[in-house]
Design a protein around this nucleic acid. Structure first.
Lengths: 337, 337
DNA sequence: ATCGAATCCGGTAACGTTGCGATGCCCAGC
DNA sequence: GCTGGGCATCGCAACGTTACCGGATTCGAT
């Protein structure tokens, strides 16, 4: 097996004194080819180490067998989006299984999201796009729909247009988290959000509001924190809450990072989670499960999200005009240890 | 701007009554084209929204402008390889900057690494491969060299063959970590390794040994732990060491996960890091920096590793027969806060 | 005035694949 | 014996791009 030994259809055809056309069809089990010929062709293909040339096929058919995921990267703080790793894993494995390869297009905070998508769909080097980090009224949705490029979004937005997405039911999760804290007797419940522009935060807030309204508790805006939480900012934020005259007795964390920060703030004051303050957190990486603290965990399988994203995108590519699939994934409380 | 409006060379040529050849050349600033023509062509290209067809070009030139990174994914425990996120970020951004797109090929523990690489290079849908998680005598190196496929490895191995790699100087880092612990008075120093087959662990162990030998301290094998450390296994491992008759007074952690586990073990016994036991850790995600504990951090910029991997691969593609570039990145102690 | 070179451009072919129409063949039916 | 119709296979063209070679025009040099 030497270096440039990439066999192609022509070589197989020559080997068997067949035409390129017949070889091509035989490899696809075309009904117009004699079964015995198909067998001969496949044998020769295997023997010569034939693998179809991606670009020849893509050029002819227009399909590239490539999916592209647009992922914003935090260049400063990798811990702030731990969920991305299982997400990437889920997407790549599902793509591979479906015969696609998945390409990652990282964007920095400097990149304009719309411009990034524009560049990608112009290059039309992918059969479909996965976009994430949806914002309110996200302009990318209209852009992609107009261009007729198959895509799927991780996250809903507040547009009237129907488009395919997979999302986490943040409303329900925040609702249940708040309820759980109430069950433990909390009435002053602090809530961590992420960037406010992010649609996920808005729905999270809605779930919190619903639970509070049902319980007839007035919402204290000072207990709701938003921003890009690092561990440090989470700690100082929660520390200030704890220092107030009427400190919270419950906290719903947005993710691992917010949790670690909050735990730090508690630790400094000698407070114990589960006794002085009750905590529910989202956890994408099973971090909380092991921490030596009494914490309720409400988790979503991010690898599953990745899988589902690819599945939806796949069906979208196969049938661009079909019904728009939307998937809403529920979170569930991990069994307390 | 409608759906299928992908302009091609032919359309630009027709628009300007030029030949396709000239248009192609003009867009590359070919010296055989009149500057004024180049200007006209570029204007028309921009106006018609021309973007070069990836597959046409790839088919003709044999270059795909795609790089593929083979990344093993831990499907059970995402925290065990946090370094992967900054690595991915570094690779994708560097690739993008160089005009390449980067495709991720995830492998599960079930996949045979050699077979994965074989499949990838057969598909020759990438100009180059990035392979990681090198093992002793890694057979992929010979395979890739034989096939003449440009590649770069993250990590060295113990082969006699020269091949391009980027690696972290684990020997030096472990040496310095051990020395640091000695400087604080430790003589019984525990060391966390990862999977032993992994080349990184072997060099890490070598650095530890060198420091110990220089100090004339006999090595106690029971203080050296290896395996795939989760937080749990790290905690139980370190807990058992602490329970022994002659417990360690220093610990060099392999990563964030090992650190968290060890801290947990300490916490349960009421021991304080920096007082009862000194700790040095590797940290890829700036986790340790914020923990409320006195810990020395020895860090390597994983995003930089990703950048360097792409750079080396690029130069390899540009000049496949040139000298083999190898880069060894030093770690450095973070300034203690 | 003629030639050679330089400059600018066009035509053709090819990369590997697939789709469409055509071709040869065998055999049943009159 | 000639026709018609499946059947298996083939040839040609095309996707969009670039490489190669050749043609045309202009200009300076002899």
């Amino acid at each position: 097996m030497k270096s440039g030994d990439m066999a192609n259809l022509k070589q197989i055809a020559a080997e068997l004194s067949l035409s390129v056309t017949t070889v091509s069809r035989a490899l696809k089990d075309g009904p117009e080819v004699l079964p015995s010929t198909i067998a001969r062709v496949k044998e020769a293909a295997k023997r010569l180490g034939y693998v179809p040339n991606h670009h020849g096929r893509a050029l002819k058919t227009g399909r590239t067998l490539t999916l592209t995921a647009v992922l914003p990267m935090e260049t400063r703080d990798y811990l702030s989006d731990l969920a991305k790793l299982p997400l990437i894993e889920g997407m790549t494995l599902a793509a591979r299984q479906a015969g696609y390869s998945l390409s990652i297009y990282s964007t920095t905070p400097d990149d304009d999201p719309v411009e990034s998508v524009q560049r990608l769909l112009q290059a039309h080097s992918a059969d479909g796009l996965i976009i994430t980090r949806m914002v309110s009224g996200d302009p990318r949705v209209k852009l992609l729909l107009d261009q007729g490029i198959p895509f799927v979004a991780f996250g809903r937005t507040d547009l009237d247009i129907a488009y395919p997405y997979v999302d986490i039911d943040n409303e329900q999760i925040a609702y249940e988290a708040t309820r759980r804290l109430m069950d433990k007797g909390c009435r002053r419940i602090a809530l961590q959000l992420l960037v406010q522009k992010d649609q996920a935060s808005a729905t999270r807030l809605a779930g919190y509001r619903r639970a509070m309204a049902e319980a007839g508790i007035r919402i204290d805006p000072s207990l709701i924190g938003d921003g890009t939480f690092t561990m440090e900012s989470s700690a100082t934020w929660f520390d200030r809450l704890l220092a107030s005259s009427d400190p919270p007795t419950g906290l719903a964390c947005a993710n691992e990072l917010g949790l670690l920060g909050a735990l730090h703030a508690l630790g400094r004051r000698g407070l114990v989670p589960g006794r002085d303050v009750h905590i529910v957190t989202r956890d994408n990486t099973r971090l909380a499960r092991f921490l030596p603290a009494n914490i309720d965990v409400h988790s979503v399988d991010m690898a599953d999200v990745g899988h589902k994203l690819v599945e939806v995108l796949e069906s979208r590519i196969a049938n661009p005009l079909g019904p728009v699939a939307t998937i809403l994934l529920q979170g569930r409380f991990e069994p307390a240890e």
